[in-house]
Simulated scan of single mutants.
Amino acid sequence: MDFDFMWQVVPMYGEAMLLTLRLAFAGIALAFLAGLFCAVCRYEKIPVLRQIASVYIEFSRNTPLLIQIFFLYFAFPRMGVKLSAVQSAVIGLTFLGGSYMAETFRSALEGVSKSQIESALSLGLKKSQVMLFVVLPQAVSVSVPGFCANVMFMIKETSVFSAIALADLMYVAKDLIGLYYKTDESLLLLSLGYFILLLPVSLIAGFAERRLRYAQFGNG
């Protein structure tokens, strides 16, 4: 194991980690919004939008992210829509992540007891108030584990971005292996890079789940 080589290339991995984190953050934020919108459309059974959301979710979940970003980066320009590598990566991650977020949020919404909704309506609350003050607070606490799992999944999925020449962690590792044949060293630093990115998410997920999952029952 060449530790001198590893020390020399650490800055390259640091820059790649920052790029990976920026792309993942943008994709996760947009996927959260897309997933929440689709979940509400399906939960409220909104005509047309419900069917569109269902088709989108099934298509997105059943096609690989690599194919999605290839389509965005290579096929769209032939149709007159030119996207940069960064734009293709963020849109692709949003497209994939939004479907997983939608299913997580939908199951959380449907997990709220119907009796609570009926009770709130009988007290004179409007449907929008029931959603805001009764359904969503409980759904949030239930969806925390699934949401955090999706975040970790999306961060790991950024490894395919190297296929469109984005200098993320995977790209740097493959580049160093090709140039210097330092396979063990490069892969070890790659693993450490993803571990450093994912460990805080895992710890936050565990803390949030303990604090929120049973909050409705008064447990801290």
Rank of each mutant, 00 (worst) to 15 (best):
Q68W: 03
P145M: 06
Y194S: 03
I57V: 11
P11R: 13
L192S: 05
L166S: 08
P64A: 07
W7Y: 14
R106K: 14
S186H: 03
T104F: 02
Y180V: 13
N219D: 11
A39M: 03
C38R: 03
S113F: 01
A39D: 06
I177T: 06
R78G: 03
G124K: 03
E15L: 12
K174S: 14
V144Y: 01
G35E: 02
A173T: 09
S191E: 08
S107C: 10
R42D: 04
S128L: 02
Q138D: 00
V140H: 00
Y13A: 12
T63N: 11
V172E: 01
S54M: 10
I164M: 08
V40G: 05
G111L: 06
G80M: 09
L96N: 15
S162A: 15
L30F: 15
M131I: 06
F37T: 15
L109N: 01
S143Y: 00
G98N: 10
E185C: 12
T63P: 06
N219F: 11
F195C: 14
F5L: 14
S113G: 10
G80A: 07
T183W: 12
R61I: 01
R213L: 05
I52T: 14
I52Q: 10
G92S: 10
Q51H: 15
G124T: 00
K156A: 11
Y100F: 15
F25M: 09
P47Q: 07
I196D: 10
S115A: 13
G178T: 08
Y56W: 08
I46P: 12
E209C: 11
F70T: 06
A215D: 01
L30P: 11
R210I: 04
L203W: 00
V40K: 02
A139C: 03
D168R: 07
G146N: 04
L109E: 00
I196Q: 11
I177Y: 01
Q87A: 12
V90Y: 02
V48E: 05
K114H: 04
S60C: 13
F133M: 06
V144Q: 01
A29N: 05
